Amino acid sequence: MWRIFQPLGSDRVNRFLFVLGVFLLAAFPGAAQAADLKLVVLGDSLSAGYQLAPEDAFPEQLQKALDEKGHSVEVVNAGVSGDTTSGGLSRLDWSVGADTDAVIVELGANDALRGISPEITRKNIEEITRRLRERGVEVLLAGMLAPRNLGPEYADAFDPIYADVANAHDALLYPFFLEGVALDQDLNLSDGMHPNAAGVAVIVENILPKVTELLAKTKSSKG
């Protein structure tokens, strides 16, 4: 009975390793090759997954949705809770590596909540987008709307930022990241501001066509 524990000869070792390799490739096909594209989500708590399990955060749910659609893309969570557009700009170079092909920019909610001047927000969003586009990175701006309790003047200055910047820098636009989720208590945490796992699922479903467009544009630009 102890013979099963005898050392394997070199031929038997090679055959064993070959069979093991075939098994691993079949069981884990994604490990056999790297994704064709790298997509970074540069954002704040709304995309970082505030108070959610890691697998429920926006980048992770988006990854699953894209995998199911057959896209060869790696989605990276570069969200930092509490980040403003100034914070996103300051960490842009190390958050978005040189191997990045496309970026979803989801920033600005904290600017509005803090009443930061829309001029500053516009300048930061434009600088982030400009620098990424100069690097040849395709950009999808996930827009935000100002809370209406800040008054119509603030909203009039804040709301058009994302569309204006997208038009100026040949970037794609998803007008409102929280579309279909904002103010719905069933889709948000108890704070009423951050999406729960179900809310993130709605965001992913809604934004998926625009992300698909982003990936197609990225592939086209890469030739």
Results as ranks from 00 to 15, higher is better:
123 K>Q: 04
170 D>H: 11
177 F>N: 00
62 L>P: 02
185 Q>C: 03
137 V>T: 09
10 S>F: 11
161 I>S: 00
96 V>Q: 05
95 S>R: 10
200 V>E: 05
195 P>L: 02
134 E>L: 03
78 A>Y: 00
204 V>Q: 03
4 I>H: 11
83 D>C: 10
155 A>T: 00
150 L>A: 09
199 G>T: 02
187 L>V: 13
221 S>D: 14
88 G>K: 07
161 I>C: 03
108 G>N: 06
114 R>H: 10
92 L>F: 09
158 F>I: 07
92 L>V: 05
42 L>I: 00
10 S>Y: 13
209 P>Y: 14
32 A>S: 05
99 D>I: 11
180 G>S: 05
48 A>R: 15
34 A>K: 15
57 A>W: 14
199 G>N: 07
41 V>A: 06
105 V>I: 08
20 L>I: 08
166 A>F: 06
72 S>Q: 06
163 A>Y: 01
135 R>W: 04
4 I>C: 08
222 K>W: 10
14 N>G: 12
133 R>G: 03
213 E>C: 12
181 V>W: 07
10 S>V: 12
52 L>I: 12
60 E>R: 15
85 T>Y: 04
56 D>S: 01
17 L>K: 07
8 L>Q: 13
69 K>N: 08
15 R>Q: 14
218 T>L: 09
173 L>D: 00
191 D>I: 15
169 H>T: 11
